[in-house]
Write a protein that binds this DNA or RNA. Sequence first.
RNA 1: GCGCCUGUAGCUCAAUUGGAUAGAGCGUUGGAUUCCGGUUCCAAAGGUUGGGGGUUCGAUUCCCUCCAGGCGUACCA
Length: 544
Amino acid sequence: MNTESYIIDQLRKFLEHKKLTGFNIILQKPKDDAHGDYACNLAMQLAGSLKKSPKQIAEEIISFIDINPEYIAKVEVAGPGFLNFFRAEENLYKSLQDLLAAGDTYGYSQKMGGKKAQIEFVSANPTGPLTIGHGRGAVFGDTIARLMEAIGYKVIREYYFNNAGRQMRVLGDSVRLRYLELTGDKIQFPEDYYQGEYIIDIAREIYAEYGERLRHEQDITLFKDKAETAIFSDIKNTIRRLGFEFDVFYNERSLYETGKIDAVIDSLTKKGLLEKRDGAFWFLSSKIGFDQDRVFIKSSGEPTYRLPDTAYHIEKIKTGYDLIIDIFGADHIATYPDVLAAVKALGYDTEKIKVLINQFVTLTENGEKVKMSTRKANFITLDELMDEVGVDVTRYFFLMRNINAHLNFDLTLAKTQSDENPVFYIQYAHARICSILRLAEERNVDKSVERRLDMLKENEEINLIKHLISFPAAVESSALSFEPHRLINYLFDLATLFHRFYTVCRVISDDKMLSISRLALIDAVKIIIHNGLHLLGINAPEKM
RNA sequence: GCGCCUGUAGCUCAAUUGGAUAGAGCGUUGGAUUCCGGUUCCAAAGGUUGGGGGUUCGAUUCCCUCCAGGCGUACCA
């Protein structure tokens, strides 16, 4: 047992003794060291129902609970009625020992063990290479997946796409026109067609294979299929470069082929929530609290995205996932409430669905905004970005900000391979540790000497240890709040604490016992930086 | 007009989900290194948390209102 769970245990006994229910015991880590290692506001919470002052209640709690010196060194009442707990130092070293023993598995838990999660993200239709806009969603989604795995979920990464519809027809025809251009025909290339260079590349491949045989081909199917294959293979390569793969590529078409779409239409009609009007079928969302109805099937007979999306989400729920995460860009923000409403109206529990929206990325270079437009093809692709700054920087920059805030991607800073770049700051700490460990090997530091972790008494050492052993809590809070940037901040702070320790404390010295102990400490830092960066999909280099 | 997101130091952003004196990086100014990687460390200056109300022991956080920006608001996805 660690100090934290011991305290919670004791406080729970107090609540039981007083027969109080419905109160949350929250231990927080105070910012100020003078406020101890754990602070609890329980007394303030109880003031209302016990009709006593928080300070009085706090005193009462202290005299009731069992203060075992193995875990707690001291408790104080402070401020408006906080209980401040000071951890027994012994327990600190024991926790550090646990960390070292766990190694690569430290920080991973089975809190959600046995549960299954599905995460749908990227889901870009195969009309062009992934852009920086997709990049944020891709890196975020993969990292959420890693965090879910870290707390015990079995995770499926899923990519949903649609290779039918107007977009794809335009794509096919764009390729056809570029092909005709290669055969020497004069063509007019419409402005709203796909302007990118990659379209010409695909046309070139077709020309190489078929020569001029397709010159009078009116059917665009071949062009469309070739384009889809080429683009998807590109997308998969980009994803692989980013450091992960999808488990499932889900084609929207299968929802039609298996009758899932018709089933939704039938059920909605039976519920009186679908109505034909002006030749189109409307989902009567105004009947269930929305301000307007939405078209599910256009008068042309083609469904809007809302219908298959509804069927798709019902499929997800039926599969039996314990957690279903959708990651969308901000431009899809209006699309999910009515889809979820339709799903719910059909009697499915949408509680398990968590929708995460990522705001847009603005790219700046030398302090100026870089304008991007997909159609005009002056966008920067994700591959080009990785070519410029590398995978580690790409991932770090996409993750370092809260997902619901706009991200300012500073290309100039990202390209800087120096201390200004926060990625290198963390990686440098890791490389520096590896270097010290190598030196210890070279100098044959005597390993037979007993390790005494309790010799680590400097302020810088204590602070470092405290931060190290809070890693599992940092992972868990990052995962449960779906906020990877918390883990980034944790690691940045860890690197700072390490560098501070390094300037004050010499690791390899004449004091063999202390050297061995400090080597263990920096080994612990190495483990945590490695585990933490791994959860973010970022490398922890041994040399830089 | 309506819906969602955002507004915190000169700039880019945090803030333990309602906690104690709002913190980092960059930039500015001034310092530290005989030594394990100076891509390092220390210090100073810098704030009416967009404005105004409210809720309570306590608000950057919750509610209302106004202001500013982004994204939507299609029988496009």
